[in-house]
């Protein structure tokens, strides 16, 4: 397969959030020349609100990867529009706050986007079936929404982590809920926790057997401890993304899972050390009115569509001016140079 150069998940600039992401296609998908169907997007708003959306397109769906693209983009757009109440809520029962409603709406937007695209292509929405995880985090609180498997975990910086949203599966391991499933929105997990929030991770189902104790769905600390320590000590965001990518391809990991793998790590208060000569990676179009316009018709992130991904005319996510920075990770099928 002759793919375009892989997009490297871009580091977030001008924010205390340090993120690193990697998305790799599973051994089985490569064997069968299937396109990777995981898509991960990150953004930081107002320099301190971290947004992550992660979708894992269903292998059983013809356009699962396209569904994942649409779902992550639509959800991120909604989350980016969220503004906390002027008084930060002190507790879950604190001042009225529409964050859970925004999370729910972001999941609904994802579903709508898929339904509209399915109608345009004249296929059933389940041909674009995908799971979806979304998270919004500040140093003081974190909220997440989830349909399907994968998980969102977080920690207060004490080398302990907790599960915020967990894999939702039915009786059978391979039967999960998708954004397009009946009742998906009604049964979606939507959780909000007060911090302090120091570490956040999102991952798709390919990693959940390794990262979670499945009986309780709690994070396996010996998995995350070295990972976050490495993450905090890394010096170079590009090298870190490459290291994470290579680790996800290492034999010890691929022996245990041959699914697509996505992982996003975020740590508060450890900004990446950017040199002043670093090129900006903000993809933006000015829009002070709050209505969103496409990024000047220009999407400078490399195309993620693989040869087996159908060529739908996707609108790029309109990264508006109020993004501190934004990045997307599709599958990286070739070695990072």
């Amino acid at each position: 397969m002759n793919r375009p150069p892989p997009p490297i998940p871009g580091p977030q600039r001008n924010t205390p959030w340090r993120t690193v992401s990697a998305v790799v296609s599973g051994a089985r998908h490569r064997l069968h020349q299937q396109a990777c169907q995981d898509v991960l997007r990150t953004a930081v708003i107002d320099e301190h609100r971290l947004l992550v959306t992660l979708a894992d397109g269903a292998g059983s769906a013809k356009y699962g990867g396209d569904g994942a693209e649409l779902a992550t983009a639509a959800a991120l757009r909604r989350l980016a529009g969220y503004r906390p109440a002027s008084t930060p809520p002190a507790s879950a029962s604190g001042p009225a706050d529409d964050l859970p409603a925004t999370i729910r709406q972001s999941l609904a937007d994802a579903r709508t986007a898929i339904e509209q695209e399915a109608a345009r292509r004249k296929v059933a929405p389940r041909e674009l079936a995908t799971t979806l995880l979304v998270a919004v985090a500040t140093a003081d609180w974190i909220a997440a929404g989830q349909i399907g498997d994968g998980a969102v975990i977080w920690g207060e910086g004490a080398d302990e982590w907790r599960t915020l949203t967990r894999p939702a599966s039915g009786e059978y391991l391979n039967e999960t809920v998708f954004v397009t499933s009946e009742g998906a929105l009604a049964t979606a997990q939507i959780v909000r926790q007060e911090g302090p929030v120091r570490e956040v991770a999102l991952f798709s189902d390919g990693l959940q057997m390794l990262a979670l104790k499945l009986a309780t769905a709690e994070p396996h600390a010996p998995f995350f401890r070295p990972l976050f320590r490495w993450h905090r000590e890394a010096r170079d965001p590009i090298a870190a993304a490459r290291t994470l990518d290579q680790w996800l391809r290492s034999p010890r990991v691929t022996e245990r899972t041959d699914d697509d793998l996505s992982l996003c790590l975020a740590a508060w208060d450890t900004p990446w050390p950017f040199s002043s000569s670093s090129p900006p990676n903000v993809q933006s179009a000015h829009d002070s009115a709050g209505t969103r316009t496409p990024a000047a018709g220009r999407d400078d992130s490399p195309k993620r569509d693989g040869p087996s991904r159908s060529a739908g005319p996707h609108k790029p996510v309109d990264f508006s001016a109020d993004y501190t920075s934004a990045a997307t990770a599709g599958c990286i099928d070739t070695e990072v140079a």
């Binding site: 057997m209 998995f223 290291t243």
Partner: peptide, 19 residues
């Protein structure tokens, strides 16, 4: 020093029974 942490050796996987 960051790159000194070798992820492949450092990270332990959860022991879940094989499905």
């Amino acid at each position: 020093m960051a790159e000194n942490i070798h992820l492949e050796d450092a990270i332990e996987f959860a022991e879940n029974p094989e499905p």
